[in-house]
Amino acid sequence: MNFDIGYMIEILPQLLVYIPITLYLAIVSMIIAVVIGGVLSLILVNRTPVAVQLSKLYISFFRGTPVLVQLLMIYFGLPQLFPWLNSISAVNAAIIAFSFNTSAYLAEIFRAALTSVDKGQTEAAISTGLTYHQAVWGIVLPQAVRNAVPATGNMFIGLIKNSSLAFTIGVTELLAQGKLLATATLQFFEAYLAVGIIYWGMTILYSWMQKWYEAKINKPYEA
């Protein structure tokens, strides 16, 4: 067996410096996805005519096609249709693809979270003189957020890992750097294992943060 643990440790620092770009891809995509997913979920819950059909089509497409296909389509395909998108950077194309893809899943997660809040909560809020708007923001949304956090967290973990697909369009992020090191020294296993361990570490850290947050927001609901 030929496994050089010394080499693996040696290249770790060269890989760790790519954590920021990976996190940047994941976090920015997540923020955009939450906004789009939030709007879509409100459209789904309120069954806004026309908008609801368009939203369903959007969700169906971005859930029904591989994220890699979406990434290639946006980076290479869109400039062909819209020449002014020629100058789009690979990083931005990746962010667009990841956020569109994630938002389709989040829309369904948020919709379920909103509808799982008991209708009596809205009724009680309205009967105490609150407007529908105040009822949603003050009473329904905070409870829906609590329902949505576990599944949303899963999506974010998926996004951290999916961000590695950005290397296919030339973004030098964590995986791309690992590939570079691997092909330079032909020590593939060490390089890719190092990359894997770094992803693993990031998701473990994130899981801890989420656990802490869930415990915090669950407090009011535990007898």
């Binding site: 009596g120 909560q121 009724e123 009680a124 009473i139 609590r146 009011p220």
Partner: peptide, 10 residues
């Protein structure tokens, strides 16, 4: 209300 409907987050 019959089921009280207290705001659970308050």
């Amino acid at each position: 209300f019959q089921h009280y409907n207290l705001f659970k987050n308050k």
